[in-house]
Amino acid sequence: MTLEDDHTISLSKSDTGGHDAQQVTVLVADDDADFRETLCLWLANEDTYETNDVQNGERAIAQLDETVDILVLDRQMPKLSGPEVVERLDKTSFDGAVIVLSADTADSALDENDVTEYLTKPIGQALFLDTMRRSI
């Protein structure tokens, strides 16, 4: 599988004496394969995440359902942009948190009123993971 392919990383570490921690499913939608991989690797070091990643907004909409807990979304993507994905969320069964990670600052097309968190790139690991923990 190449970095351009969509893929899933399932991790389940438990520090609870043999009990599995809560499974959190994250969908990362960004057209930058290296950035998607970085976010997935950061999540891999945490307790329990199942991480799916897609390279465009169209695939994000196709994968969003009630099993996804957090959508990490870029604004500038092919096929459907981040704001277009947000506009279509009500046509999916997704009911989780939306975290935007974008080089663009928030504006009237997509801002903190539309999503759970709006963060600008570049972003560090500590801020990203803290935001993820708050969004569960």
Rank of each mutant, 00 (worst) to 15 (best):
M1N: 11
T2K: 15
T2C: 02
D5M: 14
D6W: 11
D6R: 14
H7Y: 14
T8C: 14
K13S: 12
S14Q: 08
D15H: 07
T16Q: 12
D20K: 13
D20Y: 14
Q23P: 11
D30K: 04
D30Q: 07
D34C: 06
D34E: 12
T38S: 11
T38W: 08
W42E: 03
A44M: 04
D47C: 01
T48L: 01
N52V: 09
G57T: 11
E58C: 01
A62M: 11
L64M: 07
D65I: 10
D65K: 01
E66K: 13
D69C: 04
I70K: 00
L73F: 06
R75H: 13
M77V: 06
P78A: 08
K79C: 04
L80C: 00
S81R: 05
P83G: 03
D90T: 08
K91Y: 13
T92P: 11
T92L: 00
G96A: 09
V98N: 11
V100A: 04
L101A: 04
L101R: 00
S102W: 02
S102G: 03
S102P: 04
A103I: 08
D104W: 03
D104H: 12
S108E: 15
A109I: 02
N113M: 09
K121M: 11
P122K: 03
G124C: 10
Q125V: 07
Q125L: 08
Q125P: 02
A126Q: 12
F128M: 03
F128P: 02
T131H: 09
S135P: 07
